[in-house]
C-alpha cells in the first residue's frame, strides 16, 4: 500500500507541476491554455534531442528544454492569444485547442509517431528503501521539485514587484495599466513561467514513463487541468493539493480495481467537483463591493 501511495504522490507531483502552469495562466490571463499539455511534450522532445543528438549531459538538456518551452510559451501567447485579448472566452478556448493540435501534428512531422525512448536521467542515483517499499530516484526528485516550485511561486507572486503586478493584472487590467504596468508584458511573463514549468514536468514525466510520442502531453495535460479545477483553479496551493490527490486516486484505483480503466476515476473526480464544489477545494469566491 505504501508503494502505491508513494507512486501516487510521485505521479500526482507531475500533475501538480503541470497544474501550477495551468493555474498561473488561468489566474492571471483568465484563460484556459489547453495547449499547455503539448508544451510538456515539446519539453520532453527538446530534452531528448539535446541528449540523444547533441550528446549534452542531462542537466544541460533540462536547461535547454526550459529555454525552448519558455520561448514557445511566449510565442504562442503572442501569435495566438494576444490578438484575442478582447474576444469572448469561447474564441480563446477554441484557439487553445487549435494550438494544441498544431503542436501535436508539428511534432508528428518532425519526430514521427515512433516512440523515442527517453533515457533515465537519474540512473546514477540509487533508489531509497523504506522497509519493503522502494522509492526510485525520479520519484524523490519529482516530489522535491514540486515542493520547491510551489514555494518559489508563492514567494514570487506574494513578494516580488513582478508577482504583485501579475496579481493586479489578474484583477483589473485597466486599473493595472493606469498604475503604469505593461499588461501585455506581464501576461507574456506569465506564459513564460507556466511554459518553463511545463518543460520541467515534461522531463520528469518522460523519465518516469519513457515512451515519448507526440501525444505524450495530451492526457497528463487534461488530467492536470482536472487537478487544477479540483484544487481550485487560480490557487497555487490548490493546484499542488489537487495534483497530488488526483495522482493518488489514479494509482490506488488502478491497484484496487484493475478491471476498470483508472482514467474513469480521474474524470469522475472532475464531474463530482463541478457538481458539488465548482470553485474547488481551495477556490475562493470573490466578493465585490460597489
Amino acid at each position: 500500500m505504501l508503494t502505491y501511495l508513494i507512486n501516487g504522490i510521485s505521479l500526482g507531483s507531475v500533475y501538480a507541476i503541470i497544474a501550477l502552469g495551468y493555474t498561473m495562466v488561468y489566474g492571471i490571463a483568465k484563460m484556459l491554455n489547453f495547449a499547455h499539455g503539448d508544451v510538456i511534450m515539446v519539453g520532453g522532445y527538446a530534452a531528448y534531442c539535446a541528449m540523444a543528438y547533441l550528446g549534452w549531459p542531462p542537466a544541460a538538456a533540462v536547461v535547454f528544454s526550459i529555454a525552448v518551452c519558455t520561448m514557445l510559451g511566449i510565442v504562442i501567447e503572442r501569435l495566438a492569444y494576444k490578438p484575442l485579448r478582447e474576444a469572448t472566452s469561447l474564441a480563446v478556448l477554441i484557439t487553445a485547442i487549435g494550438v494544441s493540435y498544431f503542436l501535436q501534428n508539428a511534432a508528428l512531422l518532425i519526430w514521427s509517431s515512433n516512440p523515442k525512448i527517453f533515457p533515465n536521467i537519474f540512473a546514477s542515483m540509487p533508489p531509497l528503501k523504506i522497509g519493503d517499499a522502494q522509492i526510485s530516484a525520479v520519484t524523490i526528485v519529482t516530489i522535491c521539485a514540486n515542493i520547491i516550485i510551489m514555494i518559489a511561486l508563492t514567494l514570487f507572486t506574494g513578494k516580488t514587484k513582478m508577482g504583485k503586478a501579475m496579481r493586479a493584472v489578474s484583477e483589473d487590467k485597466g486599473a493595472a495599466t493606469l498604475m503604469g504596468i505593461n499588461v501585455n508584458f506581464t501576461i507574456s511573463m506569465t506564459f513564460a513561467i507556466g511554459s518553463g514549468l511545463a518543460a520541467i514536468a515534461g522531463v520528469l514525466l518522460c523519465t518516469a514513463y519513457p515512451n515519448l510520442v507526440p501525444t505524450t502531453g495530451a492526457m497528463p495535460g487534461i488530467k492536470a487541468f482536472v487537478a487544477a479545477v479540483f484544487g481550485g483553479i487560480g490557487s497555487i496551493p490548490g493546484a499542488m493539493i489537487g495534483g497530488i490527490l488526483l495522482g493518488v486516486i489514479e494509482i490506488v484505483a488502478r491497484a484496487l480495481v484493475p478491471a476498470v480503466p483508472s482514467d474513469i476515476f480521474v474524470f469522475a473526480v472532475l464531474i463530482i467537483v463541478l457538481l458539488i464544489k465548482p470553485d474547488g477545494l481551495l477556490g475562493r469566491k470573490i466578493s465585490e463591493k460597489v
Binding site: 514587484k161 504583485k164 503586478a165 496579481r167 493586479a168 484583477e171 483589473d172 485597466g174 486599473a175 493595472a176 495599466t177 493606469l178 498604475m179 503604469g180 504596468i181 505593461n182 499588461v183 470573490i286 466578493s287 465585490e288 463591493k289 460597489v290
Partner: peptide
C-alpha cells in the same frame, strides 16, 4: 502604461482598487 510616467495619474470611476491585494500592496502598485 507610459502615461503615468509623464506625470499624470487617473483615479478611475468606481475606484477599482485591487480587492485581493492588501492596502499596502495597492499603494505599491
Amino acid at each position: 502604461h507610459r502615461v503615468v510616467s509623464e506625470g499624470m495619474a487617473l483615479c478611475p470611476e468606481g475606484r477599482r482598487v485591487f480587492a485581493q491585494l492588501t492596502v499596502r500592496e495597492n499603494l505599491e502598485m
